[in-house]
């Protein structure tokens, strides 16, 4: 095989390189560029090395919102994954009821994110919102605008309302892919409902659950619009998550250097957690 001949093949992949360069690499490099320089205007820029990174990593605002972010994503996964599986298990499998429940489940996924925030912003108000008013009228003191606990509860509830459907739909499709013979064999083997779930349904749901968990982790970790509309990050900083802290820094204070460093750290955290999760799952698969 003559290797020099093959060099022409690079021309054929050139369009893809260009496309990827413009869509991903160049914008990302701009951020990298900002993160290592102190830029005042077009002609005044100083190379500052890792200073912005050091500053950002020591920033207590980042620490707080990072902890908040992990707690939030953890809660989201702990609630939405089991709930999604449970909903999928209870959904009808045949006929009109099946199509109807699929449509109902898909509705929250079709609503724009800031609209979801607005819906819950109104819905949760204790004066005119049905939800907030109902809670208060049965004697529960509920005000998401002044009580951090209530604010967290509302943000979580909103996310569960918005995204459990996704997990449920994924699981539903996974469940439908299990051949009827498995259930028949399980009945003949006298398997209990729990055993059927544990040994037939759950193993067959594994691949869709991996996708579901990854999507829900990444999305919830990057959540911005809904809590921004609902609580604006308050009361205080109690529902200010990473992306909101970042936005404040970049747009509010125009600290482009630290904001760029922050963005890269943020990006690496999402990448790292997803990678850890994915490799541990596939590693588990191989050892079986």
């Amino acid at each position: 095989m003559n290797k020099t001949e093959n060099n022409k093949a690079w021309f054929l992949v050139l369009p893809v390189f260009l496309l990827v360069a413009f869509s991903a690499v160049i914008p990302l490099m701009t951020v990298v560029n900002y993160s290592v320089q102190d830029i005042f205007d077009q002609n005044t820029a100083y190379f500052v090395g890792a200073e912005w990174y050091r500053e950002v990593l020591q920033d207590p605002r980042l620490h707080d919102s990072l902890i908040r972010q992990f707690i939030f994503s953890g809660c989201v996964l702990l609630i939405e994954i089991p709930l999604g599986i449970a909903v999928a298990l209870m959904m009808p499998t045949k006929g009109k009821a099946a199509s109807l429940s699929l449509i109902l489940l898909a509705i929250p996924l079709l609503i724009p994110w800031n609209v979801v925030g607005t819906i819950w912003q109104v819905f949760g108000r204790e004066d005119i919102g049905l939800f907030g008013w109902a809670l208060n009228s049965i004697g529960i003191d509920y005000n998401y605008a002044s009580n951090p606990g209530d604010a967290w509860f509302t943000v979580l509830l909103m996310d569960v309302w918005h995204w459990t459907s996704l997990v449920a739909l994924l699981c539903y499709s996974g469940l439908r892919a299990i051949p009827e013979a498995y259930y028949q064999a399980a009945r003949i083997d006298r398997a209990s409902k729990w055993a059927i779930f544990r040994y037939i349904q759950l193993p067959k749901l594994k691949s869709v659950l991996v996708i579901g968990i990854l999507l829900r982790f990444m999305d919830s970790f990057m959540i911005y619009t809904e809590p921004f509309v609902l609580t604006g990050g308050g009361p205080g900083n109690s529902t200010t998550f990473l992306s909101q802290t970042l936005t404040k820094m970049a747009i509010g204070q125009f600290d482009l250097g630290p904001a760029a460093a922050f963005s890269l750290i943020y990006f690496l955290i999402v990448l790292l957690v997803s990678w850890l999760f994915f490799t541990s799952i596939s590693h588990l698969d191989k050892s079986e």
Binding site: A181, Q184, Y199, P203
Partner: peptide, 11 residues
């Protein structure tokens, strides 16, 4: 009962 497509519990 033994089915046409072998049913085993994969996990």
């Amino acid at each position: 009962q033994v089915f046409q497509f072998p049913v085993v519990y994969d996990s």
